[in-house]
Design a protein around this nucleic acid. Structure first.
Lengths: 359, 359
DNA sequence: ACAGTGTAGGCAATCGATTGTTCACCCCTC
DNA sequence: GAGGGGTGAACAATCGATTGCCTACACTGT
């Protein structure tokens, strides 16, 4: 239906290549002002729009980025995708999306599909610490950037939160409130986010000398990145002889699940148990109690990742260092002073959020 | 880098067209079993994957759907997109996403870009009741399906919630709780969702004879689909001489804003004012109070929309009727009996969600 | 031995745009 | 008036896959 270059060239009485050069503002063009005007006018009149499929075939560039995400219905990834799309659109790039649900099979399938589609580069939010699919991309020389999660060791094409610093800050926040029996609901340990936050937890407790409980190991529970995992892990923690007075959950969803488990057990947050999350999903502030958490600049993470990829793809500029985005402690109502064994003072902080940087 | 058909044909000592027919399982193929095997083996060995850009140029089909959405960071649209992507992936289609922020300029630009990319069809969640861009698509014969919002009059290629029935059910729920001074925080009236829910509100009150207040007109306030709009509208309502005892907000975000305004004014939900939302975003149940709302099958809406589009695009089957998805009343804690003017009984319902269909 | 009829594949055009190379002029100059 | 240098624009070959149409060759029957 839309007019093609050839049809236009017929109308203009010129050769297609001449028309192409005119519309292209080809620097090497030698076209009379007269003919140029005629062509430009015709193009405007007929609303000529180049067929980008044909262009891509010839130029080997599609102006499309492939995005692999566990689940776009998860607001965390939705926010990141928004950032990616914003940055891509700014340079006239489009994004094509695939959900993997964290299943390697789907991941491989989607990856193959995207490559068949000749995307110019890939944004992957699905990396595991040791990821064969990503090693393959590397080997094949496909441009890509890792978002949110990175591989081991971390590579320059990674744009991730500073998970370790964030984990340290989260645990230090709890320590500063007087907590000593601090638990961690960990995420998948084959993901850098899950691994680093757990490592930060262990290291920080050790540094503080707060890891000397007989059952300290039981305080690090394997949960998941989702609400159910947080709920189950918390249930486990509540069954301990001496339960923790504070919990650092690997992310907000797990924290949410933990809070449900706590209140279901008839306990209160934060009076009996404090809970801190990670990410600061937009609804974290609407929960009850509102959630203390480590804020990750989600949208910016998407933006930066896409920008880096475009720098590689369009400008051929490869990043030299991974980008660690600073995370910020947001204190709300789900954390409070450690319960005093010998007193009933349950002081609560004001609800206004105070912030400070994690690093 | 990947091997092409021509290279493969050289290796097999056969003509490219022969190779193509073999790999294609062309029904008309007349190829010896021997050669066929040789070709298939080579293709497997070299992991031949057809270049879909080249294929698209030739076949004029890209196996890509374009999706236009106001904002993917809004969980409502994220859920719908997930449904679309799921349904598309099932038929080996991909989706390419563009955010419009409800700005006609961005919408037009993205639409043009997607068309340049030769998408096979469009999924639009951005329709206004009178939408020139959509009229243009219709005129140009581009296959598309409208999601969530439809045009006036509604067309068969629409997949939307049953907003009118949902609005009626919401207001009837409030009426059944004894409320008579019921307000509505309306959404944009140039969107079918905003318009129909407001119309349902007016109609239902009229039918019930509950619209006879001197300042009834002031109870229908222009808000927006976002939290801030709900907050502002509610502030306006609270300033009335006689404020409403219940509010039907056009969606959950507006309801959230309304609740904030109410509590900021020192009033309680639902004891002083009941609030009902629309959509049942996944976090609606985590709020305080948990939100009574009209549940829309968001994911399914995305699925059905994509399926319909694919039926058109792949099978040439055009829908005969628009699809109105049933919405369900979910009763939670944000609605309760109308306050008795002469008594202080503030009975609360149990918090477990009860449901019934809206139509 | 020859027309007839399959059978196994090759030919070549096409999709629409891009781009290195060539060509036909014209004007100048010596 | 032949060679030189510029111009302005056409030529033609891609990019990789698809597909309608042909052509060899073999075999059959008479």
């Amino acid at each position: 239906m839309p007019i093609t270059l050839k049809q236009l060239s017929l109308l203009a009485g010129a050769h297609p290549s001449t028309v192409a050069r005119v519309l292209h503002a080809d620097p090497r063009q030698r076209v009379s002002a007269d003919l140029r005007e005629r062509i430009l006018t015709l193009a405007r009149e007929h609303d000529y729009r180049p067929n980008s499929v044909a262009r891509s075939l010839r130029t080997k560039r599609t102006a499309v980025l492939g995005v692999l995400i566990p689940d776009i219905a998860n607001p965390f990834f939705a926010g990141a995708l928004r950032g990616m799309e914003d940055a891509a659109a700014e340079r006239e790039y489009s994004v094509i999306l695939a959900n993997t649900d964290d299943q390697p099979t789907r991941e491989a399938h989607s990856l193959a599909l995207l490559r068949d589609r000749q995307v110019d580069g890939l944004l992957l939010a699905t990396a595991r610490l040791h990821d064969p699919a990503i090693a393959q991309l590397q080997a094949d020389g496909i441009p890509f950037v890792l978002v949110n999660r990175h591989t081991d060791p971390i590579t320059p094409n990674s744009v991730v939160p500073d998970d370790y610093a964030g984990g340290v800050a989260a645990v230090e926040h709890l320590l500063s409130l007087g907590h000593r029996r601090i638990a961690h609901i960990a995420g998948a340990q084959d993901a850098s986010t899950g691994y680093l936050r757990a490592k930060a937890y262990r290291d920080t407790l050790k540094t503080a000398g707060a890891d000397q409980f007989p059952d300290q190991d039981a305080l690090l529970v394997r949960g998941s990145f989702r609400e159910q995992g947080g709920y189950n892990a918390m249930t486990e923690l509540l069954a301990l002889r001496e339960r923790p007075t504070a919990v650092f959950a690997v992310n907000d969803l797990a924290a949410l699940g933990a809070i449900h488990a706590i209140t279901a057990a008839g306990l209160r947050v934060p009076q009996d148990i404090s809970v801190i999350g990670f990410n600061d999903l937009f609804h974290a502030s609407h929960m009850t109690p509102s959630l203390t958490t480590m804020q990750v600049p989600i949208h910016m993470m998407g933006v930066r990742a896409a920008q880096r990829l475009l720098d590689m793809v369009v400008d051929g500029v490869a990043p030299e260092q991974p980008l660690l985005l600073p995370v910020t402690l947001i204190v709300r109502d789900s954390t409070g002073p450690a319960p005093q064994t010998n007193t009933s003072s349950h002081a609560r902080k004001p609800s206004g959020a105070r912030t400070r940087h994690a690093d």
